[in-house]
């Protein structure tokens, strides 16, 4: 039987999700994800073409608030838990020149 998701597709989504997988992990995840997608196949038999999709349990509308200055996070507390900080900014490795 052809699996619902191929090893190559799993490798592709792992790249999109910024996860590095070993060869063994690729094998294991491929069969596990295929099993979940197999279960979801019971939806295929349903005809829902006339049914509107729901993104949410209840109708949502924009919620606006008065534009007043309020209290925000304490900046020292924010930087205290940051991995690397320099001159009140988050420090990261090289970005330019990346492929």
């Amino acid at each position: 039987m052809v699996q619902r998701i191929s090893r190559e597709e799993v490798a592709h989504v792992a790249r999109l999700a910024q996860l590095a997988l070993s060869e063994d992990e690729l094998d294991a995840f491929t069969s596990q994800l295929a099993a979940v997608l197999d279960h979801a196949a019971d939806l295929e038999a349903l005809n829902v073409d006339d049914v509107e999709p729901s993104t949410h349990p209840f109708p949502l509308k924009n919620v606006l608030r008065v534009d007043e200055p309020g209290e925000d996070f304490n900046i020292d507390e924010v930087f205290e838990v940051a991995p690397k900080v320099e001159e009140s900014q988050f420090r990261v490795p090289r970005i330019l020149g990346e492929s």
């Binding site: 829902v48 999709p53 993104t55």
Partner: peptide
């Protein structure tokens, strides 16, 4: 997958 599941979600609500 996602589109279909959202429609099924409506079906369940109904």
């Amino acid at each position: 997958y996602y589109g279909k599941s959202q429609r099924v979600r409506t079906l369940i609500m109904n």
